[in-house]
């Protein structure tokens, strides 16, 4: 980032999670090959690479989304700190994982419920029933997602009445309401116009003060704008990882440089 004059050695930073020798398979097809990647606490890590490079697949390992589909298989580990447990362990309940790691998807996917109930959903399925608690948390989440002022008078309207950009911020609010430790963004702006995109990026900037973020993006400028660290992936391999400005301005690998300068991809 431009505002950071002195970049500390990453090894001195606290880790929130780390992929260790992670392999992933769709049936016989190997989609991730021996990925080793640290995710630093309260930093934004961007995953870039051409379509089909495995960046979304990698992201979806963190909250065990692949468990929903038959024929998928993980090998290796994703360790979550400070617990220091392997999220991919059979003894780990994916539902518990998903309660601590939230995800925002490519296309806004609000539930067919009111704006209020969308944001309250995570709390409701955790058994929270007290209206006053729900109200407070929903307000806080909507404020953190920079949506409160636009929706505070229409909380009971269906979420589908919002615009695309508002819907995506609603989905972010929904993820924030349950106070996740790690926020996973899967190309969150690819279905949005430039103005809505700018507001989401601004939001990511604010959120990284409080929360660790892992973001998959197709848009290299976006990665450069929002992230502290960048990982470049290609065909299931992690090619390069480092501080974002190092990856963009002083890439160590020829492949990364070719992709970033637009000679490829």
């Amino acid at each position: 980032m431009n505002d950071e004059q002195k970049k500390p050695d990453p090894s001195t930073l606290e880790k929130k999670a780390a992929a260790l020798a992670l392999n992933f398979f769709y049936g016989q097809k190997q989609a991730l090959k021996n990925i080793n990647l640290p995710i630093y606490d309260r930093k934004v890590t961007a995953l870039i690479g051409p379509s089909g490079c495995g960046k979304s697949t990698f992201l979806r390992c963190f909250n065990r989304m692949h468990d929903l589909y038959p024929g998928t298989r993980y090998e290796g580990q994703i360790r979550l700190y400070p617990d220091d447990v392997n999220l991919l362990d059979k003894a780990v309940d994916p539902i518990e994982v998903r309660m601590r790691l939230s995800m925002v998807f490519q296309k806004p996917n609000p539930f067919p419920k009111s704006i209020f109930e969308n944001v309250a959903y995570g709390l409701r399925i955790r058994g929270e029933k007290r209206r006053s608690v729900l109200m407070d948390k929903v307000e806080e989440a909507l404020k953190n997602a920079a949506l409160w002022n636009e929706v505070k008078d229409r909380l009971d309207e269906l979420a589908t009445t919002l615009s695309g950009g508002q819907q995506q911020r609603l989905c972010i609010a929904r993820s924030l309401a349950s106070e996740p430790e790690l926020l996973l963004f899967d190309e969150p702006t690819s279905a949005l116009d430039p103005i809505a995109t700018a507001s989401i990026e601004e939001l990511i900037h604010q959120l990284r003060e409080k929360i660790t973020i892992l973001i998959v993006t197709h848009n290299m400028q976006q990665a450069a704008r929002v992230s502290d660290f960048t990982a470049y992936m290609y065909l299931g391999d992690l090619i390069e990882f480092g501080w974002t400005d190092d990856v963009f301005f002083r890439p160590k690998e020829k492949q990364t440089e070719d992709y970033i300068t637009g000679r490829f991809g």
């Binding site: 909250n63 989304m65 929903l68 539902i95 518990e96 998903r98 309660m99 939230s102 995800m103 998807f105 996917n109 609000p110 539930f111 959903y121 995570g122 399925i125 955790r126 989905c171 929904r174 993820s175 349950s178």
Partner: peptide, 8 residues
């Protein structure tokens, strides 16, 4: 997936 991702 949105709901599963919330831990439903």
């Amino acid at each position: 997936e949105g709901a599963y991702a919330m831990g439903a």
